[in-house]
Amino acid sequence: MIKVQTTDFNLQAEHDKLREKSSVGAVVTFSGLVRDINQGKEVSSLTLEHYPGMTEKSLTKIVEQAKSRWNIIDCTVIHRIGELKLSDQIVFVGIASLHRQDAFAACEFIMDYLKTEAPFWKKESTTDNESYWVDAREGDLKALNKWSK
């Protein structure tokens, strides 16, 4: 399931949905949050913009790639858009599989590709009332290298 939404999500509710099938032996979840310091500045809030349509298309492709590499029983990706405050949840990736190895790897793979391919953009506002678009991190691109081996 892939969702792009302004509303928050509930970790327990998402986890419960992922363990509905009795074949599931492992669930790995990741959640990304709004952090107070970024690029050396004190962040007060964050606005997330996306490209409607392409976002869903891109996330669907990333999930399909993960499903072709690992044994995944169920998968949930939720990404929030709009204005978010400090410590708010931004993104959720949850993987249900038979064994933990598939779930750990697929979860990391989906996050690594989401960070570099899904068309979302963050604009941060600081405590000094400054606002700027966040720069892409080179480290995020490097993280993809491990999946090409």
Binding site: L114, A118, P119, W121
Partner: peptide, 26 residues
Amino acid sequence: NQTISNENSALQSGDEVAFFPPVTGG
């Protein structure tokens, strides 16, 4: 049409083209 492309990509009437900076979601 919502798929990453490059300068050589052909265009025809009805196509949707988008220009944007590197993505920063997650």
